[in-house]
Nucleic acid binder design. Structure first.
Lengths: 138, 138
DNA sequence: GTAATTGCTCTAGTCACTAGAGCTTCAAGA
DNA sequence: TCTTGAAGCTCTAGTGACTAGAGCAATTAC
């Protein structure tokens, strides 16, 4: 049996976050000690590790809820789980592409400044005048 | 003189967001019509375009507040503005690196599924068992 | 003149937590 | 056994950057 602090240390999920996940129904309400403290089994540790891993990969809490529900029905076809993962991959790729465009422009903005006064500052001018942008972004 | 809707169309910032920026002190409260509707000048249009541009580049509202304040003091040295832009560039690069690690793992997860039942599903197994991960992430 | 659109204020909701107050329980050492 | 300090409990409210909706008033186009 693990206390909530044990669980936190083993999974890397902060204590208040574990309680938040319980409130949201992502993890079941566990047994309690005589003094009303949460006591977790290994099964609950594993579920929390699953959630942590999925959150690290950027899955939304709602997606995780679906994945957990699916994992409870091992006889079903896995197309749904597969689709959630693929959508997440697409979304990650879009974010990368967007951030790369921002990187390009920020490089231009942040490296052109000659260290003089704000009146000549390329950072400020570039932000004021969209026409200075090399290509479209945002 | 522009109405809030004109401003919204010209800058691409949504109407409630313009009012929110006013509340946050990013744009000044403008003149009002006889019927208490906001009426903006070209100067305010330009400031909002500045804000929009900076938000597109991922600057936080607090950073934008600093940049606006700096742009009102053109005699100062621009080192501060420069540093804000450079920090933003560093943060964007970190996000890109992190997302690329996620992309790699998601590719592995999302493409190995053989379309059978959830019991054999690689997506679910990969999320359950961190040891299946090729390298560290998160 | 009237109807549709746009605008107003205000409150509350989003997401995924995080922080704090004020209390109780637990575990380890004396 | 007692005590002390860490860890736990519940509850409320705050974060950032908006977004949605209610219930009105003003403006604009026909």
């Amino acid at each position: 049996m693990f206390s909530i602090g044990d669980l936190s240390r083993r999974t890397g999920v902060k204590v208040p976050t574990i309680r938040y996940y319980e409130q949201m129904g992502l993890v079941a309400a566990p047994e309690r000690s005589e003094g009303n403290q949460r006591r977790y089994s290994r099964q609950e540790l594993e579920r929390l590790a699953f959630i942590r891993h999925a959150r690290d990969l950027g899955f939304a809490v709602e997606d995780i809820r679906s994945l957990i529900e699916l994992s409870g029905h091992p006889e079903q076809l896995c197309g749904h789980a597969d689709r959630i993962a693929e959508e997440q991959l697409i979304s990650v790729r879009e974010k990368i592409a967007q951030l790369k465009r921002l990187e390009t422009e920020l490089e231009r903005i942040a490296t052109c400044c000659d260290g003089k006064t704000v009146g000549d500052c390329y950072v400020i001018r570039a932000l004021s005048d969209h026409a200075l942008c090399a290509d479209e972004h945002g």
